[in-house]
């Protein structure tokens, strides 16, 4: 597994553990409202971390690893855009979470913009790799009909 995929997947798993903790607290609150309404403020973090931090980031991490390599079969292409996407995606999640608490005024739109840019940066690497696997062509033999 390449290094950049390890970063994506470990970060995704951290998002998952945090988001599921907040989810469990929110569900506990539904049963015992005495827990305090503060728990409901975790909803924005729960949603964003689950959908973008966990699911989307896991998919991207695995895609970089599993998509076919570039022609020649050696390289997965430049990793610069993939690292950039990693930074933008997680900064986007953080901004959206802060915006859900009202800490950052226009954080929701800014966070979403960063997440869109992350998707575009990742596509710079992934798009040319979405292609059939190319194998070495077998040598033709004398018994094969010539065309």
């Amino acid at each position: 597994m390449p290094r950049v995929s390890r970063w994506y997947l470990r970060t995704a798993w951290l998002h998952f553990v945090l988001a599921s903790t907040w989810g469990a607290l929110m569900l506990t609150y539904k049963a015992w409202p005495g827990l305090g309404a503060w728990v409901w403020r975790l909803r924005g973090w729960h949603l964003e971390a689950m959908l973008v931090g966990w699911v989307a980031q896991t998919i991207l991490g695995v895609l970089f690893w599993w998509l076919p390599k570039l022609p020649g079969g050696v390289s997965r292409g430049p990793t610069g855009p993939v690292w950039l996407a990693y930074g933008l995606l997680n900064a986007g999640v953080a901004l959206v979470v802060l915006a859900s608490w009202g800490v950052v005024g226009d954080g929701l739109r800014a966070g979403r913009a960063l997440e869109i840019l992350a998707g575009l940066a990742f596509a710079l690497n992934a798009w040319p790799r979405i292609r059939p696997l190319v194998r070495a062509r077998p040598r033709s033999t004398a018994s094969e009909p010539s065309s």
Partner: peptide
Amino acid sequence: LVAGAWLQWLAGLAFTWHIWPRI
């Protein structure tokens, strides 16, 4: 409901415990 919430949470931890060294 509370049992369901924390069982799912424990499941996440158990799987993470397994998968972390494999990343």
